[in-house]
């Protein structure tokens, strides 16, 4: 097998806004055809990263290659290769869905005799054929997202950027969007880079995933391997005056965090060892054991919950962390 060049590659990509380092020495390689996720809390630098890849913002340092083109030297070629679905609404409310598509097709130089056919195709893909001639003012949030998704595909880009594609949508619309994203990945073979701060979304959609925090990658792998990297199951106990010293010594307890009367353990093969742990710890009010989620992975690598928007300190500041190995 031939070794294929990555379709997107960044080398020490960095963006500063005055003193704030929004993106800090980012090194990623994204392969053709994969769905790659950037998972991180608000302000982690996801949008800034995509903006640099899409030539909307110049990098402060480092370089990035998209579809083989340097974002700084050949921005126009980069822009021809990509489609972008932005975080905030980016279509004109006073125009109909179809008119917004038409506008986009003209701006991207789609061949005149192809435009109608291509608009029909993408509208069908996102099930908006029936509503295409309504003004977008009357679209719901989910419909708007779908139209913008369709629009991003209209000029048949090799690469599609999706910035928080389901932000602010209800669970049902969210699952709809997920199915469209999966569909266009398999049917159209586009490479997709999406950002999100929804764990479930990252888990469901992404082939590989970079967890980013304060502009830095803290972990990068497939969702399955990331979860596996914790090395065991997550056990949560509620207890007063726990005897943690003894528990810590157990070789199958890989990680232990305490907050108030809550103790979180990462346990290798919890099924077999749970009884023993409970015996050691004493008076337990409640116990819960489950396989790790991406939320646990995020917590593990950053020391914070992703929902914990106010970055510094906060809820987990006083958390005791002890790791073995």
């Amino acid at each position: 097998m031939e070794n294929i060049k990555p379709i997107i590659e960044t080398k020490n990509l960095t963006k500063r806004f005055d003193k704030l380092i929004a993106v800090n020495n980012l090194n990623i390689s994204i392969h053709e055809g994969e769905i790659f996720g950037l998972l991180g809390p608000n302000g982690a630098g996801k949008t800034t990263t995509l903006s640099m890849l899409a030539t909307l913002l110049p990098p402060s340092e480092g370089s990035a290659f998209v579809h083989g083109f340097d974002v700084e030297k050949e921005p126009s070629k980069v822009r021809h290769s990509i489609g972008f679905v932005f975080q905030d609404p980016s279509s004109d409310d006073l125009l109909t869905g179809r008119e917004n598509l038409y506008l986009h097709a003209l701006m991207y130089g789609v061949e005149m005799h192809d435009i109608n056919q291509k608009m029909d195709d993408v509208l069908k893909l996102v099930d908006l054929t029936d509503r295409q001639n309504e003004r977008m003012k009357r679209y719901s949030g989910g419909m708007r997202r779908r139209l913008e998704l369709a629009r991003g595909l209209l000029h048949e880009p090799k690469i599609l950027f999706l910035d928080e594609p389901t932000l602010g949508l209800d669970p049902q619309s969210r699952e709809h969007i997920w199915s469209y994203i999966k569909k266009l990945s398999t049917e159209r073979k586009v490479t997709i880079i999406l950002t999100t701060h929804y764990m479930e979304e990252a888990d469901q959609l992404c082939d590989r995933l970079a967890i980013i925090d304060h502009g830095k990658i803290v972990a990068l792998d497939t969702p399955a391997k990331l979860k596996k990297s914790l090395g065991g199951d997550v056990v949560t106990l509620r207890t007063k005056d726990p005897d943690l010293v003894a528990v810590k010594k157990l070789h199958y307890v890989l990680d232990l965090k305490q907050e108030g009367d809550q103790v979180m353990l990462t346990v290798d093969n919890a099924g077999t060892h749970l009884q023993e742990i409970l015996k050691k710890i004493g008076n337990v009010e409640s116990v819960e054991s489950r396989s790790p989620t991406l939320n646990d992975v995020f917590l593990h690598f950053t020391g914070r919950e992703i929902r914990d928007h106010g970055s510094e300190g906060g809820t987990f500041e006083r958390m005791i962390t002890s790791r073995r190995k």
């Binding site: 126009s76 822009r79 021809h80 932005f86 980016s90 986009h104 701006m107 991207y108 130089g109």
Partner: peptide, 9 residues
């Protein structure tokens, strides 16, 4: 919307 226009080639 402005980004949508500016990102066009």
């Amino acid at each position: 919307f402005l980004k949508e226009v500016l990102v066009a080639p």
